[in-house]
Amino acid sequence: MKTLGLALMGTGRMAHVYGPKINAHPGLRLEVVFNPRIASAQKAVELYGGRAMDDLVAVLADPAVDAVVIATPTNTHVDYIEAAANAGKPIYCEKPLDQSLDRVDRAMAALDANPVPFMLGFNRRFDPDNNALREAVRNGEIGRLNMLMSWSREPSPPPIEYVRASGGYFVDATIHDIDLLCWIAGERPIEVQALGSCMFDDQIGAEGDFDMTMTTLKMPSGALVHINNSRSCAYGFDQRLEAFGDGGMVQTLNKRYDNLVRWDNRRTVAREPLKHFFLERYDRSFFRALDEFHNAVTTNRTPSATAQDGRAALAISLACKESALSGRVVRLN
C-alpha cells in the first residue's frame, strides 16, 4: 500500500477528529501539523506526531507532504484550497467549502486551473448504515423511490458565538442532510420549501436564526424529500433515515451505547440514551472518508464528494434559508 504524507491544516475540534484517524490508517502518515500559532501546532504534535510548522509556504513546498487535510475554520477554507492547489497538492477539505457561493466559485476556479485531486469531507456518506440504505435504494430493493426522510436532532444548542459565525442553521446543519439525501436519491431538487422556528434558545432567535426547521425538496423524478432538524433533543443525538418506495421501505436506526432490550416487572423495553453527538455517532465515517481519499489519490481517480457536490449542497441550503425567511417556495435551476 502506498503511503501518503499528510499536512494537517489547523488544530481545532475537527483537526482533533482527523489526527487519530490519520494515525490509524496504514496508508497515511501525519507529516506536518500547521497552524500560524506555532504553540498550538506543537501541542497537537505532542498528541499525534509529525512536525509543527507555522509557515504555509514551507509546508506546501515540503517534499514529504504529499497531500493536505484542511480542518481549519470554514472562512479560511478557500484560501488554503487555493494555496494547496497552486502547489499541486491533493486536498481533503472539511465541509462546507464556504458559506458564500462567490467564494466557492473562487475555490473551484483554482481547482480548475490546477486539477489536483480534491475531496470534500461529507463524512455522513461514509457511515456504514447510510451507505447500506443508499445501496438498497439504488439496487431497487424498494422499487421506485417515492419519499426520502431524515431526522437530524442535536442534543443541545451550540454556543451563541458559534451560531453567529455559522452562516445560519440551513448552511451549518441542514447542508449535511441535503448532501446525503441528494446522494442517496441520485438527483438534486427542482424546488425547495422550508420553515423555521426558534423554541429552545432565545439568543438564537435574536440573531435571526432558527433552532428547529422542516425542509421539503421536490426532485425531478417527483420524489419528495423531508428533512427534520432540531438543535435540541432531550434523549441524545437523533439520527435516522427512511426511504419509502412503491415496493417497500428501508430505515436506519439510532446508534446506542447499549442495545440490550430489558423485560421485567417495571418495563418492557428500556435502553441507554443515544450516542451523544456526531463525533461519537459518526466516528467510523471519518476514517472511511479518509480511506476513500487515500484510494482516490493513490489510484489516480476522482474522489467522491467533489467540489461540485459541495457547491450544489450550499446552493440548495441557501435556497432553503431564503424559503424559510420569505415563506415562499424557491425554485432551483
Score class of each variant (00 low, 15 high):
residue 125 R to S: 07
residue 43 K to H: 04
residue 129 D to S: 05
residue 135 E to H: 02
residue 95 K to C: 03
residue 64 A to K: 14
residue 56 L to Q: 11
residue 140 G to I: 06
residue 91 I to M: 05
residue 40 S to L: 10
residue 104 V to Y: 03
residue 56 L to V: 09
residue 144 R to L: 02
residue 127 D to P: 11
residue 41 A to F: 13
residue 23 N to F: 13
residue 22 I to D: 00
residue 67 A to G: 01
residue 67 A to I: 06
residue 116 V to N: 04
residue 13 R to V: 13
residue 111 L to A: 02
residue 109 A to N: 07
residue 129 D to I: 03
residue 71 A to V: 07
residue 99 Q to D: 00
residue 72 T to K: 12
residue 121 G to Q: 02
residue 78 V to N: 02
residue 29 R to D: 14
residue 60 L to E: 10
residue 109 A to H: 04
residue 66 D to N: 03
residue 73 P to K: 09
residue 59 V to I: 08
residue 88 G to W: 04
residue 123 N to E: 15
residue 85 A to G: 02
residue 87 A to N: 03
residue 15 A to M: 12
residue 85 A to K: 06
residue 67 A to T: 10
residue 68 V to S: 06
residue 113 A to R: 07
residue 120 L to E: 01
residue 99 Q to S: 01
residue 42 Q to G: 13
residue 23 N to Q: 15
residue 86 N to S: 13
residue 65 V to K: 11
residue 146 N to K: 15
residue 41 A to I: 03
residue 87 A to I: 07
residue 120 L to M: 02
residue 47 L to K: 15
residue 93 C to Y: 09
residue 87 A to R: 05
residue 45 V to P: 15
residue 146 N to M: 15
residue 147 M to A: 15
residue 82 E to N: 10
residue 80 Y to M: 03
residue 130 N to H: 06
residue 100 S to T: 02
residue 68 V to Y: 09
residue 127 D to W: 05
residue 113 A to P: 01
residue 89 K to D: 13
residue 113 A to Y: 11
residue 106 R to M: 00
residue 35 N to T: 14
residue 92 Y to G: 12
residue 124 R to N: 07
residue 143 G to E: 02
residue 57 V to D: 15
residue 17 V to D: 06
residue 128 P to A: 06
residue 65 V to R: 11
residue 53 M to E: 13
residue 94 E to C: 13
residue 96 P to F: 10
residue 136 A to I: 10
residue 108 M to F: 00
residue 31 E to W: 09
residue 79 D to C: 03
residue 26 P to C: 00
